[in-house]
Design a protein around this nucleic acid. Sequence first.
DNA 1: GGTCTGACGCCCA
DNA 2: ATGGGCGCCAGAC
Length: 100
Amino acid sequence: MNNEFKTAVYSVICAIPEGHVASYGHIAKLAGAPKHARAVGYLLKHLPSGSEIPWYRVVNSQRKISFPADSVDYQRQLQALHSEGVLLVNGRVKINQFLG
DNA sequence: GGTCTGACGCCCA
DNA sequence: ATGGGCGCCAGAC
């Protein structure tokens, strides 16, 4: 994976408005690499600590959080989304889907 | 190189 | 709607 892809992904994620979400696949597509949804996940997993990138606005194509529901990671993302007014119904984001 | 593992996605029953 | 199977591709050994 090259730097171009990384920076493209970063800027796309940073372009998600507050209170909205986007899927891994959608982000990959907007970044110019349609088949690299997993790579987006990799980047988020390995974000430098203290980065300003709103990783929590990224969910999967089912509009669900891609962590096991009992994990602390899940709770952290859920809380971050709640604090922006994003509501989940049955673990699923209700509205405010970012379409680029 | 070969193989395994994912913060994924699409298709189909 | 929902679970399973399979394709995909970058990293880590």
